[in-house]
Simulated scan of single mutants.
Amino acid sequence: MMFLIAVAMAWTAPALAQVAGQDAKAAYQYAMDTAEAGYDAAKARCDTMAGVPHEICVADARAARVRIEEEVTAAQKNTLAAYTQARTRIATAFHERDKTRCGALVGNDREVCLAQAKATLVALQADARADRKAIEARLDANDVKIEAEYRVALQKCDAFAGAVKDGCVSTARTAYGK
């Protein structure tokens, strides 16, 4: 079943590389179409099975498709919020897959499997939120550092006068994006 995930990921990389020269909207649509085609192919392979193995196979294919679609969507939006949302949705899709796998078990084994699946989901979602907060904190810290360095550069310009000072201030503004 992990094979399906690896195959799905292999489908996307060439697809994205092939359309890198095209505009972003076409590349996005191509990647989404490729993900859907990969899902359809995986699901067709699953249709040769019956019962629980069929359900597990379909759940694996669905989770792999969600992963590709969410990663492509996040890359297209290219925002921290989009990447966090994608990680959360991917975790949810794989949680659904894990619940399907647990359905094949009975008794305490099933309950333990479901509890483990839920714990994994909670951990992945918490990691996504924590990573987002850490990235935001690093970006804020970087902004503060740049502002401090800019103030130092302006202070150095105070040693000059006239056109030289104006040039120094202009250079500092350009260097620090002000």
Rank of each mutant, 00 (worst) to 15 (best):
K145C: 07
K165A: 15
K178D: 14
V19Q: 13
G107N: 01
A104L: 01
R173S: 08
C157H: 00
A175M: 13
Y150C: 05
F3T: 09
V19C: 11
E71W: 08
Q76M: 13
G177L: 06
N142W: 05
Y28F: 11
C168Y: 04
A115Q: 07
R62H: 12
A31K: 00
A123Q: 04
A26D: 09
A82R: 03
L80I: 05
K133N: 11
G21E: 00
K25F: 09
L124T: 02
I56D: 15
I90E: 01
M49R: 05
E111G: 11
A115V: 07
G177H: 08
W11K: 01
V152K: 15
Q116T: 08
T34K: 03
Q76Y: 13
A59M: 02
V112W: 10
T88I: 14
Q18M: 14
K133I: 05
A82I: 03
L4P: 00
L80F: 04
A6V: 10
D47R: 00
K156D: 15
A128M: 09
V66H: 01
L124G: 03
Q125A: 02
C102H: 04
A86G: 03
C46F: 08
A24S: 09
I146R: 13
T48F: 10
E96C: 03
A86E: 04
A44N: 10
V164P: 02
D127M: 04
A41G: 06
V164Y: 08
G162I: 08
T34G: 10
A50M: 12
A50Q: 06
D47K: 08
L105D: 06
A128R: 00
C157A: 04
A13L: 12
R87E: 10
E71Y: 12
A81V: 12
V106I: 05
A126Q: 14
A63S: 06
E96T: 09
R67D: 14
E149Q: 12
D33M: 08
V66S: 02
R151Y: 10
Y39M: 08
M49A: 09
I146G: 03
K145L: 10
A27L: 02
D23P: 00
G103Y: 01
H95F: 13
A163T: 15
A126Y: 07
Q29K: 11
Y28D: 04
C168M: 04
G51A: 15
E147Y: 11
T84W: 12
Q22W: 14
A81E: 14
V164G: 05
R65H: 01
D23V: 00
K165R: 15
D131M: 05
A75C: 04
M49K: 10
A161L: 05
Q116M: 11
A8K: 00
A20T: 07
V19L: 13
D23T: 06
A115M: 05
T174L: 12
R97P: 00
R45T: 10
Y83G: 01
T171I: 09
K156W: 10
G162Y: 11
D166C: 11
A141M: 11
F160A: 07
L80P: 01
Y176K: 04
R138I: 03
A175L: 06
E70Q: 09
D109E: 14
V152R: 12
A134G: 06
